[in-house]
Design a protein around this nucleic acid. Structure first.
Lengths: 217, 217
DNA sequence: GCAAAAGTGTTCAGCGTACACCCATGC
DNA sequence: GCATGGGTGTACGCTGAACACTTTTGC
C-alpha cells in the first residue's frame, strides 16, 4: 500500500488520491471502502477509501484508475475531481495531501475483475462506519457534491444502467437526494431536457403494465 | 523560488500551489502575475502566477497566504480552492502537481507590504501574456469559475470595497461577466437578496446626484 | 376483476426580463 | 438651466410546484 511519504520527501508535501466511489443498488446510495492492509499503517484492519500515492509518471486521474483497478478490481468507470485536502496531520505517517475524486458505477458486476488486492465492501451512505484518515469528511463532501450536481448536471447517467425506465431514473434521483419527487413533474422535466432517447422496447416486470425503456443520448 | 522537486522525491509527485489573484480596477478585471526569478527555472524572466511548493508543515491554504505575502507583498485576502492540475509534464523541472487557488482583493493598496520578493504586475484578463507552465490554462479556468460563481454566490463582496454604491456594484458584475445588465432589474435583485445594508451616507462625486452607500451585512 | 405500476394535464405563484422617465446635484 | 449619473414600477412569459385519475398488463 502507501509507502511512507516521510522517507521520500522531507521538506515538502507528498501527494495521494482517494476515491469516493458511489453506486445505487437495492434502493440505497452506497459508497465503496477497502480494508487497510499495510503492516506499518496505524489504520491497519480498518476501513478506508481506496487511495494511494500518485506516481511520478501518472496524472491524478490515471492514479485513480490504477488504484481502483489494482486494489478494488473495478475498471473503466466515470470519475471527476472533488477537492484537495491538505490538513497537516490528516495522515499519521507523514505529510500527505490528498486529491479526492468522486467515481460512479452503475453496473459494478461486469466491471469487477477477478483479482483485487484488498477486501472491499459497499456501505449504505447512512451506515458508513468510522473510516481511517479524514475519510469520513471526504465522504461527506462527496455526498454533498453529488446531491448538488445531480440537480443541475447530467451526472445521473453514470448512476443508472445503459437502459432504464423513467421509474428507475426517478428512483435514483429520490435515493440520491433523499427526498421524494412528484412523478408527473419529474417526468415532464427530465423529458424536456432532451437528453433521453426512447427505445423501441418495453420493460416487463411481472404483473404490471410494461414501462418504456430509455437511454441517454 | 521553487526548489527542484526531483531532488526531493524521486518516486512520487510533489505538490505546489498557484494563485490566480483577481481585482477589479479602472473598469477592468485584472489578474496578478509575477516575474520568474529562479536561476535554474526555464521560465526565468517570464511571467507566471504566484506559486511555490507546499511545505511539510503548512496546509495548501496557508501556503497560498505565505506565498502571496512573501513573494507579492499582499496580505490577508480572500482565497478559495479552484482545482488541482496534475498533468505529468506541466513543470519542465520535475513532477509537480499544482493545487490552484482563486484569490480576490478589492483594495490592494492598503494590503500591499513594503517588501516583495518578486516583481509583480496586474494584467487585464483580456491582455494576459503567455505565462510559464500551464498557467494560462489555470487563469482561464479561474475566470470561468469566477463568472459562474458571481451569479449564485456572494463572492462579489471580495471584489468591491467595504463601502460602495449600487452603481459600483453593478459595474463590478458587468465587468466580471463581460455583459451589460439592466439597471432596474439588477438593483431589484441585489436588494432582494437581503445581503446589503444601506449606510447613512451619500457618495458625492462631483456634478451629479449623490448615491446611497451600502456595505455587505 | 383486481392488483400493481405506468402514464398523463392543468392551475397557480414566483421569478427573470424587457422597457422609459423623473430626480438631485454642481456648475 | 443643463449636464450627469441616481433612482424607480409595470407587464409578460417561463418555470417550478401542487395535485388525482385512467391505462395496461398478468393472474
Amino acid at each position: 500500500m502507501k509507502k511512507d511519504p516521510q522517507s521520500t520527501n522531507i521538506h515538502f508535501a507528498a501527494l495521494a488520491v482517494d476515491v469516493v466511489c458511489f453506486r445505487v443498488l437495492e434502493g440505497e446510495l452506497q459508497v465503496l471502502v477497502g480494508k487497510v492492509v499495510s503492516e506499518e499503517n496505524p489504520f491497519k484492519g480498518k476501513w478506508a477509501l481506496v487511495g494511494g500515492l500518485v506516481r511520478v509518471d501518472e496524472t491524478a486521474e490515471q492514479s485513480v484508475g490504477r488504484l481502483l483497478k489494482d486494489k478494488a478490481g473495478i475498471q473503466g468507470i466515470y470519475n471527476e475531481q472533488l477537492y484537495t485536502f491538505s490538513k497537516v496531520n490528516r495522515d499519521p505517517r507523514g505529510r500527505v495531501v490528498s486529491v479526492a475524486y468522486i467515481a460512479i458505477t452503475s453496473d459494478p458486476f461486469i466491471q469487477h475483475l477477478d483479482k483485487a488486492e484488498i477486501e472491499t465492501r459497499w456501505f449504505n451512505i447512512k451506515q458508513v462506519p468510522k473510516l481511517g484518515y479524514d475519510h469520513n469528511k471526504l465522504v461527506a463532501v462527496a455526498i454533498s457534491r453529488l446531491k448538488t450536481k445531480i440537480s443541475y448536471s447530467n451526472i445521473v447517467r453514470y448512476l443508472v444502467n445503459k437502459e432504464f425506465t423513467l421509474t428507475e431514473l426517478h428512483s435514483v434521483y429520490e435515493i440520491v437526494l433523499g427526498e421524494s419527487l412528484d412523478k408527473r413533474n419529474f417526468r415532464k422535466k427530465i423529458l424536456s431536457t432532451d437528453n433521453l432517447k426512447e427505445l423501441n422496447k418495453k420493460a416487463k416486470n411481472g404483473v404490471m403494465r410494461p414501462a418504456s425503456v430509455y437511454s441517454f443520448k
